[in-house]
Amino acid sequence: MAERVSSKAMQDVQEEGVLKAVSRRDFIKGVISSGVAVSSAGYLFRASSILHGQQLAAGVGERLITLNVNGQQRRVDVMKQETLAWTLRYKLGLTGTKLGCDRAECGSCSVLIDDIPHYSCSVLTHTVRGRKVLTIEGLAAEDGTLHPVQQGVIDEQGFQCAFCMPGFIMTAVGFLKTNPNPTRRELAHGVSGNLCRCQDYDKILTALMRGAENMRRSSLG
């Protein structure tokens, strides 16, 4: 069912020449908010014909699974070969997680799985069933209060373009859970698996150190 809906959606999209008509982000958000099951159509513009054809041909489709993301149980159709970054961004609409290299070489896709930082581009979604996934969208408190590390980043204006920021923040939060009081050097080592293309690592570290301090203070108070 889900597949039929989405392939219909794909057809419409392809016929319209979607890139002219709607931005992909609008399209995806639209599909999500209209409550239609978002299927493999999520982000096919880059490789639509290949993936689409393959699905039909091989008959290896999606399976409806339940994931624990940001404290919510999310039901979602997932292909066997789908990565977590893909599911988060293009099925669940959680586009705060960025895809940079898709090869475990940049860190922009970092999320926490059971509190441990992982590159979500290099994890198969089916392998995180039953585990807790936390993305940048799930960090702030329910009333909107930012996480202490997010607040530290804002206070210190830690990033420039900020493409790398969600990855850095998630990695830092994961690291600080087990090392709440790091030296600057230890924290640098903790986030050494994250690259910033704008490259003011010094400023990033200052912001994350401030975040660490905020975190210690908030757990005291």
Binding site: R46, I50, L51, Q54, A58, K80, Q81, R103
Partner: peptide, 16 residues
């Protein structure tokens, strides 16, 4: 080196 070609080809995933 890391060239993004597209998503992985389909496979069956077993989780024993």
């Amino acid at each position: 080196m890391a060239v993004i070609r597209d998503v992985m080809a389909a496979f069956e995933l077993y989780q024993p």
